[in-house]
């Protein structure tokens, strides 16, 4: 089973990289660009075949290592 984990800064936490990207897009003429937030995508291959168990395991990975829950939130996407 494959999973994709998205880690992004929590709402309200200043994201200087996202801000810089937003500025750059504006400068390139993309005038409609509003707020930009940057995050990470982590692709993980799992031996687990049960979706529920896989999800639970991935949540533990996020809490333990992949995200810093002081400043970051995460989303998990499972792929068959």
């Amino acid at each position: 089973m494959k999973a994709r984990v998205f880690v992004t800064l929590k709402n309200g936490v200043l994201d200087p990289q996202g801000k810089a990207i937003g500025h750059a897009l504006n400068n390139l003429g993309f005038a409609s660009v509003g707020e930009v937030r940057q995050g990470k995508v982590i692709d993980i291959e799992l031996a687990e075949t049960d979706a529920g168990k896989a999800k639970a395991e991935l949540e533990r990975m996020c809490e333990k290592l992949l995200a810093n829950t002081v400043i970051e939130k995460y989303e998990i996407e499972l792929k068959a």
């Binding site: 936490v13 200043l14 200087p16 990289q17 810089a20 810093n68 002081v70 400043i71």
Partner: peptide, 17 residues
């Protein structure tokens, strides 16, 4: 220390990147 939780908060990218 902040990642282990021995100290509160987090250290983020410098504001000027």
């Amino acid at each position: 220390l902040t990642e282990t939780g021995l100290l509160p908060g987090a250290l983020m990218r410098n504001a000027k990147l």
